[in-house]
Design a protein around this nucleic acid. Structure first.
Lengths: 105, 105
DNA sequence: AACATATTTGTGTAATTTGCCAAACAACCA
DNA sequence: TGGTTGTTTGGCAAATTACACAAATATGTT
């Protein structure tokens, strides 16, 4: 793994890691239907607001979301909607289930 | 987040987490060009073979790879190639760079 | 059987992530 | 100004993950 190539994989991994949490996937899914403020997402998720805020920060830092403050509230939205395309493939992985573990021979 | 829905997001997150590591992304990329045995991947990655083997186990347990033992070697291959489609979107996230951090107002 | 090669597994340590509470901030209202 | 609401941040304990080394396993060779 050459140095420059390594960096590429590092950056890609960082983005995937941001997505790789159930609550954050839920948030992304929810935002696919439009902007939401932190308080709305907090209600839907059911965790402490500070926790939800941190999840949102992770997603925004990864470049997946963007935010805008309007009055008291901060509104989050999807910045790169193509991440929604991942869901179909995740479904496929889950469906293809079992097997895979050292077959044949 | 209702219980059944939670489980869905848990499973999806588990798959993404398996991908969310630079070495494992490298492995997936390498396998996109065909089957490889652990020893080949170990050479390419440059980590201890035990480490590479563990990465492969993570990917296989997630349902992304499958393996087959032939003689002394174990060969791994992509089981669900659609994960390769993720790369394009990851590129898009990286390109759309900066901004996103609390704009306007 | 003894030995070599390829892979996996046990185990310990270090590093990272998660999630809560409390405290700090920011914007609005009275 | 002081109070209220919405959000972020500091700090900490628990849980998880990463990785190296050594030991165990499996297969093939002599």
């Amino acid at each position: 793994m050459r140095a420059t190539v390594q960096q590429d994989f590092d950056r890609r991994a960082r983005i995937l890691k941001a997505l790789a949490h159930p609550t954050r996937l839920f948030i992304v899914d929810e935002l696919s239907r439009g902007e939401r403020c932190v308080c709305e997402l907090t209600d839907l998720v059911g965790d402490d607001m500070s926790t939800v805020s941190r999840h949102l920060t992770v997603l925004r830092d990864a470049g997946i979301l963007e935010s805008e403050k309007r009055g008291l509230q901060v509104w989050y939205r999807l910045k790169v909607p193509c991440v929604l395309n991942f869901f179909g493939c995740l479904e496929a992985v889950m469906t293809s289930e079992d097997s895979g573990r050292r077959s044949r021979n």
